[in-house]
Design a binder for these strands. Sequence first.
DNA 1: TACTTTTCACCTAGGTGCGAAGAT
DNA 2: ATCTTCGCACCTAGGTGAAAAGTA
Lengths: 239, 239
Amino acid sequence: DLGTEMIITKSGRRMFPTIRVSFSGLQPSCKYAVLLDVVSLDNKRYRYAYHRSSWLVAGKADPPLPRRLYIHPDSPFTGEQLLKQIVSFEKLKLTNNEMDQHGHIILNSMHRYQPRVHIMKYKDKITTVAALEKEEVRTFVFDETSFTAVTAYQNQLITRLKIDSNPFAKGFRDSSRLSEFERGRIDKMIHGHTYARSPIRSISETHGGSSKDRPISISPNLKRPQRFRYEMVQTLPPL
Amino acid sequence: DLGTEMIITKSGRRMFPTIRVSFSGLQPSCKYAVLLDVVSLDNKRYRYAYHRSSWLVAGKADPPLPRRLYIHPDSPFTGEQLLKQIVSFEKLKLTNNEMDQHGHIILNSMHRYQPRVHIMKYKDKITTVAALEKEEVRTFVFDETSFTAVTAYQNQLITRLKIDSNPFAKGFRDSSRLSEFERGRIDKMIHGHTYARSPIRSISETHGGSSKDRPISISPNLKRPQRFRYEMVQTLPPL
DNA sequence: TACTTTTCACCTAGGTGCGAAGAT
DNA sequence: ATCTTCGCACCTAGGTGAAAAGTA
């Protein structure tokens, strides 16, 4: 199982499900930037074998593309805001256009990727990946959010799941054509895919000894059906 | 002539035309907040005499409502951003709901108002009108943006102008029903209304003696038809 | 009478996967 | 054969004034 699939287009396509996080344990009066980038999961290119409904390695990865850092547009946040609000990356877009001028994240089709969420204490503008590595930053990775970039869906069950859960795809829903057998297969897949869990994650950060230190967490997404929820905590050294 | 009319509703209504400004003469590395508030133009209540197509004083103003300050949502801006971008207040909403919880600007219907644009050097959060008066701030007033708050349009020519120029009202356009006589009257009105001029204004600020000082300006709006443009410069002491 | 509120058809703006056509 | 692109119908989301209904 290689996770879900995400469409990439020339003009940019949103991710679905959206990655949404909320923190706890930050210092209310500090300023933070929340960031997301997408890194390669391996050095391979894939192809999809329709007759077996499975992904196969199809060679070495294509040359790497310019790596972009998505700065959440509401940044800078105060710690106070981040303790109250959910941070949603719904406007983030993925593209296969190497010359993209919109700041979208550029990916190779038929390659596997892993999104990462970063939080850093705000000092000045962060516009390059290099800058990110020099600042005080914590990086959180949730394995279930990995995906294969595609220009058209390969696995039909993933298409079905997206149509059934993305409100913008409602026009393609036709629940009558779902046999009970198919519904069973889908429900089975739900337990092995990103869909099974909310993209809202709980992250904890513990501070290095100070009595003011609090853990950071991301709470479950209440907007989606029960089967799309999950909870999990990551703990990292404090900022 | 009492300027244009702006609809106010319980849930909030956008202003149209939108107030849009761009500055020059700021310090690129400084941070600024851009703000808008709306003040009473007089202490009167008005009514509209349909048979004469004119506004009449109808008594003393109603009791004042909570005065709100609209902080442009993209604030804080860097000086650099403000020198490049147009600042648009398209998302600002007007309401007659005294209990509004959305941060909209609260107005009395049938009263005259004057929007004001403020720019201040960013120090900390500004959330009250009182705070505004204590900070280093410059206030710009453009007389042509004054309006009467209404719950339904009174002057039919204003309705016509809004339908003809607001893309969201395209469904009500029926240019065929406009006789040449009416079109003439409208064109005449255009020269006496806010519509005659773009709500993008040019503001200059000169600094108090430093060689680094530059004027601040707001440039004309190129998105609207020629007859909706104007240019004008206001100069104020530097921040 | 003199407003104000509610509901509605009709827009703008833009996010979906489909399927035909294009590219290699 | 294996992807990628493009135009499309069908959605979500929400900004318009008209007209009917409500208020006082």
